[in-house]
């Protein structure tokens, strides 16, 4: 049985990042987009943890904690905005929210 090396972690992380990015770019539902953003953040977390483990340096973990905190806050704010938006527009489709056009 092969041991789990840093490369495996990085591959997982890259896969998650890819999935998240494609989700952000392609899905129309803002809730899904927010979830995809969470995926991207978690890909980053995996990276941080993997390197922290590999380099035996705890800084990466500290950063991961920060990123989680940040993700929570971001999700809270994002969902709050989303609810306010829904109240006004009665939609959560990102392509229907295009008021910033000139």
């Amino acid at each position: 049985m092969h041991p789990i090396t840093t490369v495996h972690y990085l591959a997982l992380s890259a896969a998650l990042l890819l999935i998240g990015t494609v989700g952000v770019l392609t899905r129309r539902n803002i809730v899904i987009i927010l979830m995809s953003i969470e995926l991207i953040l978690n890909a980053v977390n995996i990276n941080l943890i993997a390197f922290s483990h590999a380099l035996q340096n705890v800084n990466g973990q500290v950063f991961a904690i920060f990123v989680i905190t940040d993700a929570v806050a971001e999700a809270a704010v994002g969902l709050g905005i989303l609810i306010a938006l829904f109240r006004n527009k009665e939609t959560v489709q990102a392509d229907e929210i295009d008021l910033l056009k000139w």
């Binding site: 770019l25 987009i33 990102a94 392509d95 929210i97 295009d98 056009k101 000139w102």
Partner: peptide
């Protein structure tokens, strides 16, 4: 400038 967030993100 489409006004769509995803376009910009792209």
């Amino acid at each position: 400038q489409t006004g769509r967030v995803q376009g910009y993100a792209f």
